[in-house]
């Protein structure tokens, strides 16, 4: 799986996420996580490309969050499509992962934190 990553002031922004994030590619996605953490423990997933997510996809986001938190950072999401957002809310992930409308808002939120 090819993920496009940018390092913006020490925060990893990952875009070009797959269109579908489901049980068929969740394992492959999880294997990419160490490569992200290598560079920074703060990450933003730009979700604009993701059109479909299932419980396995949600699970891979949680795994990412756990790894980043273990390294002292966190994961934030931005630009989440309506339908994907309703799934995240259904499994109450909006309570444990901050979701922002835009990439800029997500990046700004890091500098607002102590």
């Amino acid at each position: 799986m090819k993920l496009f990553t940018e390092n913006i002031d020490g925060i990893m922004v990952i875009s070009s996420l797959p269109k579908v994030l489901d049980a068929s590619n969740a394992m492959e996605f999880k294997e990419c996580i160490p490569r992200i953490i290598e560079q920074s423990s703060q990450a933003v997933f730009d979700m604009s490309t993701v059109q479909f997510i299932d419980s396995a996809g949600c699970g891979s986001l949680i795994t990412t969050l756990r790894h980043l938190k273990g390294a002292g950072g966190t994961l934030k999401l931005c630009d989440v499509r309506k339908q994907v957002r309703s799934v995240l809310e259904l499994v109450r992930m909006h309570k444990i992962i901050d979701i922002y409308n835009t990439r800029e808002e997500a990046l700004r939120s890091f500098s607002n934190e102590p």
Binding site: D54, S55, A56, C58, G59, S60, I62, T63, L65, R66, V87, L90, V91, M93, I96, I97
Partner: peptide, 11 residues
Amino acid sequence: GSREDGFGLHI
């Protein structure tokens, strides 16, 4: 956030 599975049936 402590577990990543078990959501399928809930959904």
